[in-house]
Amino acid sequence: MAEQVTRKPYVREVPRLRWFFRHPRYLRYMAREVTCIFIGAYTLLLLVGIRRLAEGQAAYEGFLQALKGPASVLFHVVALVFALYHTATWFNVTPKALPVQIGEEFLPGRVVAGAHYVVWALLSLAILFLAGVF
């Protein structure tokens, strides 16, 4: 019924594709969303590795050999950049997602986000250490 009452409904033209080039904020949103392509692709790579591991030593060592080379390095570097962007954007909204209230006051946002960065740095170092990197 509403369509009949409104004689000149305002329809804002939004291009179906490439709308995100219109504003830097939209572009940052899109950069954040496409991180999932790289995280998903990298997880599928991990899955292939686990599969090769289940197939035995020769299969797994073939997988490690296939990981070597410039194309693989490039994929890893690009995936790392997007993964870090995901980490930063995820932690930066934690003050909104997990507001910490103490008495009447809320803990400042940078404390909540900062705590995530500190835990992340320590966890990453611990994993590198346990993995035998140093």
Binding site: I39, L64, H76, A83, H86, L128, A131, G132, V133
Partner: peptide, 29 residues
Amino acid sequence: TAFVTPVLIVLTLLVALGHTPDILTYEGL
């Protein structure tokens, strides 16, 4: 993924560069 994906990528990046970490050798993993 925010907490662990970057460090996992670093581990397999080391493999790609020819320095396989102990955990990613066949015996390790």
